[in-house]
Design a protein around this nucleic acid. Structure first.
Lengths: 202, 202
DNA sequence: CTAACAATTGAACAATGTTTAATTAATGTT
DNA sequence: AACATTAATTAAACATTGTTCAATTGTTAG
């Protein structure tokens, strides 16, 4: 067959991404193969390469969607808790982040396990989404703390974010088991936030 | 050929690990394949499976060696700086960690990129090494701060460690570019430590 | 109706980890 | 010393990957 025109290029792209999502959620991201997607949507592997440059490109597109799903979660969490004390807002945001990672475990893991091929550069549209990721936390800092410069505040937002992520990531991947026990991850994150907030208040 | 007895089982194991190390350092950990190791040491792939259960087992052994190289680095850093203020000791330890990760980049990356196959359990000897990893930091906390319980101190040591690692890991893998600029990673880590130390002092 | 076009395929390639029967060097036995 | 046993090593095969590309065949234009 050829030129079936069952679907436009755009429809095909959506089909592929939807199928990939399904596979990831059902079988984990390491089960995502070109052949599996193709057979799932009733095409052959070659067709995927008409739509995406490579499996790497497909992965990048999936990661972009993951980021887009995550952004409003954090923004809303900040909005909902805006009248609480800053440490409570941050704790809530961290909890939302962990919930998101748990609910969308394989998508989330894929973002960080995916290797960047030697300096293939993260595209600009992707960097843009990442910048937005830190915004809610930066806003909290802007509302409740004073910094000697914008740069200092940006640094604070990012080390907080990286720390919160780092704790959960190590805990969840199990590569460096931190501590056993119920809620130990939440306890660690809350302790981190409490101490940092005290520090930021001087 | 068979039973060449060129090398004992132990020698073979060392040969394999040495060759693997060489390959990783020269070509990156994603270039590590059974065939490449085998041809490098003058054997065939099958022989690797006499010594290791799988490539996964080989990777685990390599990661164990990486941990063993890292442990004394942190312990010594703590020892050398023991007369300084606690925040300075911690900053120095964090710096040593980053230096280690830079110097042994591919080994270090391999530890965290390697996926655990579905609940195949991290072996006990490996968990033991990991526990030692947090010891120097725990000692610093014990020497300079008071905690309401041992558990609280363990939590503090681990969230600090995970945070320091998290910052450097995100920065280095470039998956979530934090900020551009010289020494931005050191600045973030130092800021984290300063704020946490202030918090821990109540 | 025919010619140009382009989406899709199918088959192939190189590379991966892993398994297994066959080989053969070393050891043990008579 | 000759033979039998044992076990380390190999070669070849398998099932998978991602990826490429000439050939095919619907679709569209003239």
């Amino acid at each position: 067959m050829a030129r079936r025109s069952d679907h436009t290029r755009e429809e095909l792209k959506d089909l592929i991404l939807a199928s990939a999502t399904k596979i990831i959620e059902k079988e984990g991201f390491s089960a995502l193969t070109a052949r599996k997607i193709a057979s799932d949507i009733g095409y052959t592997p070659g067709t995927l390469y008409n739509v995406f440059q490579s499996m790497d490109g497909l992965t990048l597109a999936l990661n972009g969607i993951t980021l887009e799903k995550l952004l409003p979660v954090l923004a809303q969490s900040k909005e909902v808790n805006k009248d609480k004390a800053p440490e409570e807002i941050m704790k809530a945001m961290a909890r939302e982040y962990r919930d998101f990672a748990t609910t969308n475990r394989e998508r989330w893991l894929m973002m960080f396990k995916h290797e960047i091929s030697d300096e293939e550069e993260i595209p600009e549209w992707f960097r843009g989404k990442i910048a937005l990721l830190f915004q809610p936390l930066e806003d909290v800092l802007k509302d409740h703390f004073t910094f000697s410069s914008d740069a200092k505040r940006q640094i604070a937002a990012r080390f907080l974010w990286a720390s919160i992520h780092g704790i959960y990531f190590l805990h969840e991947t199990g590569k460096l088991p931190l501590l056993d026990g119920e809620d130990v991850c939440e306890n660690m994150t809350d302790a981190l936030i409490e101490n940092c907030v005290k520090g930021l208040r001087k």
